[in-house]
Design a protein around this nucleic acid. Structure first.
Lengths: 136, 136
DNA sequence: ATGCACCCCGTAGCAACTACAGGGTCAAGC
DNA sequence: GCTTGACCCTGTAGTTGCTACGGGGTGCAT
């Protein structure tokens, strides 16, 4: 399978595939006589793993560790669990942060009564943190 | 006020202040005889506005628009409201996304029973999107 | 005169891509 | 047989919002 086909099969940009190869996340595939990259099923499933993990918000370095782990089937699974659990905690923290932010923004947006910028409550609220009800 | 003092007064890194000046978000201040930047109250409140807006997640370009607006007090306030409302929508969308993500991660993490990587449910779930209950 | 804290400038690095520029390859159609 | 178009190659530079140097100058106290 050539790179365009792999791209369509996994929903990954061609440039991104080459980028993953450059940073050593995907192994360099064989080349055709014309120097085109030639991929097999192993590449496709590895790339799917990477994309799915990225979609779930794992960093490249976390994915690298997870791939190392799955490349060595004798290793203990707890490392994978640790990485996923920590990531879950980060996501939960981010949600909490954004929720505070949303409340603050809702308050600020709700203050707009129209009119000119000089009287704008939105601009006023942005300039003055003391209007806020929570830390952020 | 010198840059270090402004930095402490607004909780902004010195390098960040110089960066904001370089990209034209803060006006270049006067200089002392020793070529040190010398700031006044107007700079401090403008920088506070920027920091507060950044904390609320506005992009530099959005902040630029908001500053332009507040520099011209005769302009209509609706632009500010539009920017803030759109930003609020983005935050809400991000929260929704992250919530789906969190649910998926919770499900994946919950599957770990220990053991070796070859049987790891976490790694299996990452490799195979079809285990997922929602799109992401 | 010698520390030390502070300031200057310019450039490079981070994450995770994305977007060129400037080329080569290959099959189909005229 | 020659062009058109879709595909592929490499290498480098751009994106966002900073942060971190390296290699200097300034100002004040000891």
């Amino acid at each position: 399978m050539k790179i365009g086909e792999l791209s369509r099969a996994t929903g990954t940009n061609i440039e991104t595939i080459r980028y993953y190869e450059r940073i050593g996340l995907l192994p360099a595939p064989d080349r055709t006589a014309a120097n085109y990259r030639s991929y097999g099923d192993a590449h496709r499933s590895r790339l799917s793993f990477v994309r799915h993990s990225r979609d779930l918000g794992f960093t490249i370095e976390e994915i690298r560790s997870l791939l190392d782990l799955s490349d060595d089937p004798a290793r203990d699974c707890s490392e994978a669990d640790r990485i996923a659990t920590r990531h879950l905690e980060q996501v939960e923290e981010k949600i909490a942060q954004l929720t505070l932010l949303r409340d603050e923004l809702t308050r600020i947006v709700g203050r707009c009564r129209g009119g000119v910028a000089a009287d704008c409550r939105v601009i006023e609220a942005l300039g003055d943190h003391s209007h806020c009800e929570s830390a952020h």
